[in-house]
């Protein structure tokens, strides 16, 4: 019987205590913010969308190799002699035309592993966080500043140069073969091609 009354009293009492707590909170100011109209202040180290400063990129492919999900796709073409690609902001001389620099944000896991190995600090994470798209393809961002025609041009330039070199080499080899009966050694000098690994 004592337990019975005690239970009843306990039930009532703890309910009243709980009600006191919730009633108090009726007058506590809300902690929410009205998101789309009021935007939260992002901390300086925020890790959101990647950005690549192509002026500084030397096409070294280190970020693509560090990426655990292979969301960075880089293709480079060697410059032909006589072309001036300029220097990066920390004084390195560029030697490669970057013809493809795609980051697929549908795949990106925002882990920041690509940022640290970059020798020129040209890839970094920004605080842009609203970039949803209707199509998955639209999430592939192309960072290359060259126009499409230019990219083709650069490739063609390089291929022409390559062909010229090859022709010269063959000519030279023929010459050499004629001289020493030695077979020519074909040289593999393909542009650095990153293969998509699925």
């Amino acid at each position: 019987m004592r337990d019975y009354i005690y239970n009843f009293w306990q039930g009532l009492y703890t309910i009243l205590i709980g009600m006191k707590v919730t009633f108090k909170h009726l007058f506590v100011p809300a902690v929410t913010i009205q998101y789309p109209s009021v935007k939260p202040q992002m901390p300086e180290r925020e890790r959101n969308r990647l950005y690549v400063n192509m002026d500084d990129c030397i096409g070294c492919d280190q970020c693509a190799r560090a990426c655990p999900v292979n969301c960075i796709e880089i293709e480079t073409v060697k410059s032909i002699p006589g072309e001036d690609l300029g220097t990066t902001s920390n004084g390195k001389k560029k030697a490669l035309w970057v013809t493809t620099f795609n980051i697929d944000f549908a795949k990106c896991c925002y882990c920041q592993l690509c940022v640290f190995p970059c020798p020129t600090e040209c890839i970094y994470m920004t605080d842009v966080y609203e970039f949803s798209e209707f199509k998955r393809e639209d999430l592939v961002f192309d960072f290359v500043t060259l126009l499409p025609a230019e990219r083709i041009q650069k490739k063609k330039n390089f291929e022409e140069m390559q062909a010229k070199k090859e022709a010269e080499k063959i000519a030279a080899a023929k010459k050499a073969a004629a001289q020493a009966n030695k077979p020519p050694e074909p040289k593999q000098d393909k542009p650095d091609n990153k293969e998509e690994n699925i």
Binding site: T22, F23, H25, L26, V28, P29, A30, T32, Q34
Partner: peptide, 10 residues
Amino acid sequence: KVSAHMQDRL
């Protein structure tokens, strides 16, 4: 509204 304000929401 009651639930929101009891839970510190709006």
